[in-house]
């Protein structure tokens, strides 16, 4: 009874915390469902993950922070995993521009076990995100401030194949609705106008995610686990000559993680990380440098994960 309260309480907590749309870069692996919703319930146990990130870039302190969290678990009755994720972010210290936003998502991922060694999991999720972008008054002018409210409704379809040692994941974004609304005009730069709504473009984004553990045996104290995420897509709005659109392939995130007993260290897409990890708990700090196009600064992330293992219930 008490365990059920904890379990569903955590779900509600994750649901109401829900927040952000991954606007800030996260260390790969901090949120399991960041790039592929099929990771929902993958652990077989209830799992709570969270990450707090802070950017401090430039002399004017182009600060931003973000908090993201997720909860997922496997439900044996339906042999599926469910997951909730969300977060919020804020970039507010810039004199000229600030923005903030939140998002949340719900994912369902049925699981199929093959020979007790492999798990194949298709998945589908639905996410909603909203953001406000405010351009402030320009100094020494009468200028113009504009506020843009945007919202984003989209779905993702994913597929994950994994063993205890490796995984291959693929997910596709399915844009459902993507709109911006302009309002709050003042000044001369932008003429007054009524609210404007822009419909989404037909963009195609997909993510490939790979991970493999190099370990002499499953009981070895030392292991090396590289993980990478590639994004491949097509944007028909970017046409060059007779091209149908712009196709791209880029490396989105990376995590080269070393582990000796319970100590972990390595390099990820936000910097160098150091932490402590067991099969239940992970606490990790990442430190790196960021660059906003003009100046460089500090990027820090604190990651926490807790899994409610079978023997705890």
């Amino acid at each position: 009874m008490n365990h059920s309260i904890i379990r569903y309480g955590s779900v509600l907590f994750a649901l109401f915390l829900t927040v952000s749309g991954y606007s800030q870069t996260l260390p790969l692996g901090a949120l399991p469902m960041q790039y592929n919703p099929a990771f929902a319930g993958e652990a077989g146990s209830p799992r709570f993950s969270s990450n707090f990130g802070l950017n401090a870039i430039g002399s004017i302190r182009d600060n931003s922070y973000a908090f993201n969290t997720s909860y997922d678990q496997f439900i044996p009755a339906i042999r599926s995993g469910i997951g909730f994720s969300g977060g919020f972010y804020s970039t507010s210290s810039n004199r000229f521009f600030s923005s903030s936003g939140y998002s949340f998502a719900l994912a369902v991922a049925p699981k199929f076990s093959l020979k007790g060694k492999y798990t194949v999991s298709p998945s589908l999720d639905l996410s909603y995100g909203a953001n406000d972008q405010i351009s402030k008054t320009l100094p020494n002018t009468n200028s113009t401030i504009r506020q843009v409210n945007g919202y984003d409704l989209q779905s993702r379809a994913g597929l994950l194949v994994n063993t205890r040692k490796w995984y291959i994941g693929y997910s596709v974004e399915i844009p459902l609705r993507n709109a911006y609304r302009f309002r709050g005009f003042d000044g001369l730069v932008i003429p007054p106008s009524s609210d404007t709504t822009l419909t989404s473009t037909k963009k195609f984004n997909s993510y490939w995610q790979f991970g493999y553990t190099f370990q002499r045996s499953s009981e070895s104290k030392f292991s090396f686990t590289p993980q990478v995420v590639f994004r491949t897509g097509w944007d028909p709005s970017l046409r060059f000559g007779r091209n149908n659109g712009f196709r791209y392939l880029s490396l989105v995130a990376i995590n080269l993680n070393f582990r000796y007993q319970k100590f972990i260290w390595g390099i990820n897409n936000t910097g160098i990380h150091l932490g402590w990890q067991t099969d239940k708990v992970r606490v990790m700090l990442s430190n790196g440098f960021g660059y906003n196009g003009r100046e460089s600064g500090y990027i820090g992330n604190a990651t926490f994960r807790y899994m409610l293992k079978q023997n705890d219930r």
Partner: peptide
């Protein structure tokens, strides 16, 4: 054990 084969949570 549970139906799914999880990734090794000590490494991932």
């Amino acid at each position: 054990v549970p139906y799914v084969v999880p990734l090794n949570s000590e490494n991932f």
